[in-house]
Structure formats: structure tokens, C-alpha cells
Design a protein around this nucleic acid. Structure first.
Lengths: 239, 239
DNA sequence: CGTTCCTTTGAACATAGTCAATAAACGTGG
DNA sequence: CCACGTTTATTGACTATGTTCAAAGGAACG
């Protein structure tokens, strides 16, 4: 298969693709990212590679695969706080001796690489990191509204739209189709529901002609109607 | 009344007090904070002084009063995302042309001042800002878990403990008493409940001997039991 | 092929929401 | 300091949304 309109090798590396979309990067900065993207580490599904309360070792980026930040209560209740998708950064902070405030768990095989520390000449990279952090906060805020004020139907719809928006940044959306490797139980833990209720909600979306979901792929069947349902506009964190 | 063990004038200014608790500040840095604390701006209750989607003007700090970050849906549903308490910063970010991802609303009369931009010699201040940001994220994550996985009783208990912890940083807690200027409707909007249900939940906490709440003051009557209820440990974001 | 994990379904139940009305607290002007 | 109007807190009866428990199909995988 020949991929058309692939502007450069750059766009095939999710981190380069995503960070380039967030700020304009110079050739040197892109080279540094590519160099870092060579030093990969691969984590198997279910591996917890950051632990709440433990020191954060090093800023890194996700090259491929899905992970999530979770908080588990003593009685076993679990909340998925956010997802880490290809192109996302983690452990980036300007503080000394940082401590993780949530654990991070691989959900699929996850490939990571170091996130280069921006030097004096890497203004674009620093800007991209800052915008990435702002986006991260934006999605945390959306997650709060979702859990606090949307019902199950709206939560699933809103969350699907968000996944589509974020995966698009890494170039993983084709039309209205994107990979969805999560079990319904995980979706439930992210949306503050039970897996049984997520199942019923997904079926409602299906029979309303809004969603197709099978074989690890989600297809949004009526984006305008989904959009109206959850009044979602694309995230905007810089002018 | 004579206040004992008041180490310096510094501790009477909430921002200085809080940031000093987050990182060790030099005399110059404290002076810069005091200088900034002279340039106040006062906002009346209900005034929206940051608007979602609008550019962020300038990093500032809260000297006194309470505010909240909110998101309002078209149909009137409202979610309070977080609270701004004395000593808190807002609009601090390293990005160029930042845009607010939530509105900020004064809940009481709020006095703010500029947050000085750390210079080359202000390592302590930069560290304090970084730790403040990390704490801010920590509390957003707790809010997500609260909304996603705690029931009403636990939500209120957990939230009260968090308010106590945060207000303590600004020196506003006496024993287990602290100011609580919010209406039950606002608490409801923060906890993803209705005001009616918040009312009933507060009464349950009262009759269980856990909480006293009247005249704008909250008193936690049995902190150990509250702590056990929500398995809360103090926030820790640096080693 | 069998095992395991995941999805789907049903019935009973629980938590929280809605609507409506009353009581109490608060702020303001006289 | 008091009367009045407004906001906030409280209560009850009913409803709705989501949970729990249990079991049966399917799909993925060694």
C-alpha cells in the first residue's frame, strides 16, 4: 500500500506529529525528537510503569499504544483519570524531586521514548510542551464536567468525541473511525459507571445510529448529532 | 488577642505563607511577593474575572476570598471544577498566548495581586510555582475520583477534608474549624449532586457526629473517622 | 478444543434527582 | 433596631438513573 500525502518521515512518528501540531518546531528540535524516538522501551499490557507516591524518574513520551492514569481505592473501586495516547508526554514537570500523583498502567503494548529536555535554543519544543500541558489540563477539566454533570449516554458520547479529537492529533483517525482497544470495564472505570451500564449505553448509541464498535475499532456514525448532544467544540488552549 | 509564634510579617500574607510552605524562598523573593501584594485588585461576589475561551492576561494570586473555576452547559447545568483559595495562583503558565479553559468566578469578595514572574535568581519562586501547579493537578485528579467513584456521603466528607488541608496552607484553619462561605447549591455544583441531596447528606454527617456547619464555619467533629471514611492522605507532590 | 476473558441480558434494588412547599437566615432601607 | 424582600436551608412524596447479582453467549488465544 502506498501512503499518499505523507509530507515527511517526521509525520510517521506520533510524538513528532503531535508536538509539531501544537507548536512550530525547528529542524534541530525535530532531529532531537527523532534521536530520542530511537531509544525506546516497550511495556507489556497491565504493566504499571509509574506508581502513585513514587518519584518520577524522567520525562517520556508515548510512541505507540494506550495507557491510563488510575487511582485505586482500598475497597477495589477504581477510577481511570485519563488516557495516555500516542504522542502524549508524561512525567514532564519543572519541579525538582517530583512525585507521581497517580499510577500509570499500560493497556496495550506501549512503546515509550525519552522526552528531550528543551535547551536554550529549543523555544519551539518548550512551547510544545507547555501547550501539551495546557491541553492535558483542559481534558482533565472536561473529565470533571463529564463525571459531574453528564448522564451515562452523554458521557460515552462526549468521551468518544474526545478520543477522536486526541487520536487525530497523532494521525490515528481515518474519517470517523479510530482504534478502540479498551474493554467496556475500562471505559466504565473512566466514565464513573459500571461495565453493565456501559454495555447498555453503547447499545443505545448503536441503535440510535450514532456508533459502531467492534473488532477494536470505533466508528462515529453521526458526528453532527453527537456534537450537538454534548455541545463539544475542539479544545483550544492558545490564541 | 496576641498571636503567638508568628515568625514574621511574611506569614500574614496568604500568598507568601502558602508559597513558603511549598518551597524555600529567599529574602529577595519574599520581598518581591510583598511588593506584588501591594498592587491589589478587588472583585465583588459573582464577578467573572476570567472567561473560558478568552486569552489569559496575567499571572495573579489570590490574597483573600474564595473563587471557583466553572463550566456551564447550554442547558444551565453547571460544574464547579475547582476552588481558588487564599494563596492560590491562577493564570500561571509557560505558554505564549494562553487561552483560559474555564471561567473563574468570585464567590466572596476576592482580593488578587500580580504573581511576580520568577527571574534568573528566583529559583525558589519558580520551584514554588511548579509545586503549586503539581498540587493543582493533584486536586483535579482527586476531584475526578471523587465524582467518578465516591457516593454522596463520601464526596462531601472527602471534599471537606481537602478544603481543610488546602486552607491550612494559607493559615486559615484553627484546629478543626475553617471558614465555609459556600451555599449548598455551590457545594452541589462542585460535587456533581443537587442542592437537595447535599442538604440531606450534610444532615447525615451531622447526625453521625462528623460535621458541624453553620454561620459560615465548618467544624470537623471526628477527623480520624472522616479520614478512614475516605482514605485520604495529605497531598504529596515532591520528595 | 478448552479455558479465559469479555460482552450481553434480565430482574430486583439503591442512590440520587425532581417538584413543590415551608422555614430560616440574611441583607437593606426606614 | 425592626419590617420586608430575597436568598438559602429544610422537608416530603414520587421518579429516574444507574447498580447489583447472576447467568448465558461469544470471542480470543494458547
Amino acid at each position: 500500500m502506498i501512503t499518499l500525502a505523507e509530507p515527511a518521515h517526521a509525520t510517521r512518528v506520533s510524538v513528532v506529529r503531535r508536538l509539531s501540531a501544537l507548536a512550530s518546531l525547528g529542524a534541530t528540535e525535530i532531529d532531537r525528537l527523532h534521536a530520542a524516538a530511537g531509544m525506546t522501551r516497550t511495556l507489556p499490557p497491565r504493566r504499571e510503569f509509574v506508581t502513585e507516591g513514587e518519584p518520577i524518574r524522567e520525562p517520556r513520551a508515548v510512541l505507540s499504544g494506550w495507557a491510563c492514569r488510575t487511582h485505586v481505592l482500598r475497597d477495589g473501586r477504581r477510577q481511570v483519570l485519563s488516557f495516555l495516547l500516542p504522542g502524549d508526554l508524561f512525567g514532564v514537570c519543572s519541579q525538582s524531586n517530583p512525585v507521581a500523583s497517580a499510577s500509570v498502567l499500560a493497556l496495550t503494548p506501549v512503546v515509550t521514548c525519552p522526552a528531550p529536555t528543551p535547551g536554550p535554543g529549543d523555544g519551539g519544543l518548550a512551547e510544545a510542551y507547555a501547550v501539551s500541558a495546557a491541553l492535558g489540563e483542559h481534558y482533565l477539566l472536561r473529565q470533571i464536567t463529564r463525571l459531574g454533570r453528564l448522564n451515562a449516554y452523554e458521557r460515552v458520547a462526549d468521551w468518544l468525541m474526545e478520543m477522536r479529537e486526541r487520536l487525530a492529533l497523532a494521525g490515528l483517525v481515518e474519517g470517523d473511525r479510530f482504534p478502540m482497544p479498551l474493554t467496556q470495564e475500562l471505559i466504565a472505570d473512566a466514565l464513573g459507571l459500571t461495565s453493565v451500564h456501559v454495555n447498555r449505553t453503547i447499545q443505545a448509541l448503536r441503535s440510535d445510529g450514532l456508533l459502531e464498535l467492534r473488532g477494536g475499532t470505533a466508528t462515529l456514525r453521526d458526528v453532527p448529532r453527537l456534537q450537538a448532544l454534548v455541545e463539544r467544540r475542539p479544545a483550544r488552549v492558545h490564541a
